[in-house]
Design a binder for these strands. Structure first.
Length: 478
DNA sequence: ATGTCC
């Protein structure tokens, strides 16, 4: 401490600013001027901290009495160095616009102005996210946007349909509740002894430095589900269309439906490469989180490999979830259905050119492609067949979409209200909370109606016994 | 989404 005292009385010079990474020229000059005019009493260490604060977030100091001019110079510098957005936005299709919040529209319009953007679409469950809105689809040329994929890389749906009649569920509710509680893990919980999976021997786990550090935790979290809107549930599925790709006669079956992603592995991959992208790709403030990685760059290729690993890992987790439940039911599934809804794919557009299609909370719906669109814990989900609508970039919604935020839902609804809703729907819920109340979501039937040109319904899934993250004592319907 | 802020 004492040793530093002498240094602290030093006068701040331009060489100090260079060490801080302060841009040369006007930013340095303005900084010295401001410090030596208003902050001479502060001591050098605090002067430096102050400058670092302004540099980290100049937009927060724009109208500051003494630091404002410096913040404005820094912002001008940033704007001059950043990649320009196209002045005119490209057109894109919006489905169910009446139910989509303005914030999501604004984000999509910004995304359409990126020089790498080729096409976009907004699904009827869209809401504001980080960078690209959730429910946003964006096709780019040779570029991948980590926040266009989302934090939970490979977040996906998976369904197993069993040769067990739907009646079995009503007669065995308690047994099935126990099977769910004993064989699924949510949030921080994991299995004492995870089942191994071949995914863990993938070379990416040893070859990509950032992924290597995540391997142990990834093994620990194998076969687990996350928090938030993730779930594992027993329900009944009604197959309407006897001419289906699973060879299932029309009828009502017992089914397991799961929703979750790549856990900490994907979250950390997303966080790491987003930072890399933001450094490599300076964009104006409103587009900052849409920073992309060129697929010809080393970082871009590395992200692509890591993203695919996270997607396969998410799939492996679902497979283990279903494997455990299948073992308890003692019956092999008749059909298995699954799809990612947070991911990027190399696809051909209508004119045959390769584009990178980002689906951030959107279900792949190319012609004849089977997918799952869940509703809420107490409203139906759907097995869908894509119609290959080019304007929607071969996509559909990934759910009902929220009408209010989690915090707003907690403030708006009460436990008795939710309990009543679930009782009326005949749904048992283990875990979860008011933030996932079905009333906080849009009407799934309306959402399906908005996208009838994008998908056709093959089957309807009715959730009956739902497990989500949270205290099991919190909400349990008897 | 995420041991939910370095």
């Amino acid at each position: 401490m004492k040793k530093n005292k002498k240094k602290e009385t030093d006068k701040l010079t331009s060489s100090d600013l260079v060490k801080l990474g302060f841009p040369a020229g006007k930013p340095q000059g303005t900084a010295l001027n401001v410090i030596h005019t208003y902050y001479t009493e502060l001591g050098k260490r605090h002067q430096i901290e102050l400058l670092q604060d302004v540099m980290a977030a100049p937009e927060q100091y724009q109208i500051h009495a003494t630091l404002g001019p410096l913040a404005q110079v820094l912002l001008a510098q940033k704007a001059a160095e950043s990649i320009a957005l196209k002045p005119v936005k490209q057109k894109y299709a919006v489905y169910g616009e009446a139910g989509i919040e303005q914030g999501a529209i604004d984000q999509m319009e910004t995304a359409m102005r990126l020089p790498v953007s080729r096409a976009g679409a907004l699904m009827p469950d869209a809401h504001q996210g980080y960078g690209l809105p959730v429910g946003g689809v964006l096709a780019t040329h040779n570029a991948v946007i980590p926040y266009g994929v989302g934090v939970d890389i490979g977040c996906r749906m998976s369904m197993s349909i069993y040769d067990i009649h739907a009646r079995y569920l009503e007669k065995n509710r308690e047994k099935l509740k126990k099977i769910l509680t004993d064989n699924t893990r949510f949030g921080n919980a994991s299995f004492k002894r995870p089942m191994d999976h071949e995914i863990m021997s993938r070379p990416e786990f040893s070859e990509i430095p950032v992924v290597r550090e995540l391997k142990d935790r990834a093994f620990q979290q194998l076969g687990t589900s996350g928090g938030g809107n993730h779930f594992v549930e027993f329900g009944t599925v009604e197959i309407h269309d006897a001419d289906n790709e699973f060879g299932l006669p029309a009828g009502k079956y017992l089914a397991v439906l799961s929703h979750s992603g790549s856990r900490r592995l994907g979250a950390n991959i997303a966080g790491y490469y987003t930072k890399v992208a933001i450094d490599a790709c300076p964009l104006p403030q409103e587009a900052k989180h849409l920073a992309w990685l060129d697929l010809n760059s080393e970082a871009g290729q590395e992200y692509w490999l890591a993203m695919n690993l996270a997607g396969d890992y998410a799939s492996a987790c679902h497979h283990q979830i279903h494997e455990r439940l299948t073992a308890q039911l003692g019956e092999a599934p008749l059909a298995k259905i699954e799809n990612h809804h947070n991911f990027a794919w190399k696809e051909k557009n209508a004119s045959g050119k390769e584009v990178i299609v980002h689906r951030k909370g959107a279900t792949p719906a190319g012609k004849g492609v089977i997918g799952i669109i869940p509703g809420t814990m107490a409203t139906p989900g759907f097995i869908v067949r894509g119609k290959g609508e080019a304007a929607a970039i071969n996509s559909a919604s990934h759910g009902a979409g929220r009408v209010m935020s989690r915090t707003q839902a907690i403030k708006t609804f009460t436990q008795p209200q939710m309990r009543k809703y679930l009782q009326q729907a005949g749904v048992d819920v283990i875990g979860s909370g008011l933030d996932e109340a079905p009333m906080a979501y849009k009407d799934i039937h309306k959402v399906m109606d908005y996208q009838k040109d994008l998908v056709e319904v093959v089957g309807t899934f009715y959730p009956k016994i739902v497990r989500m993250n949270g205290d099991p004592k919190y909400i349990e319907v008897d």
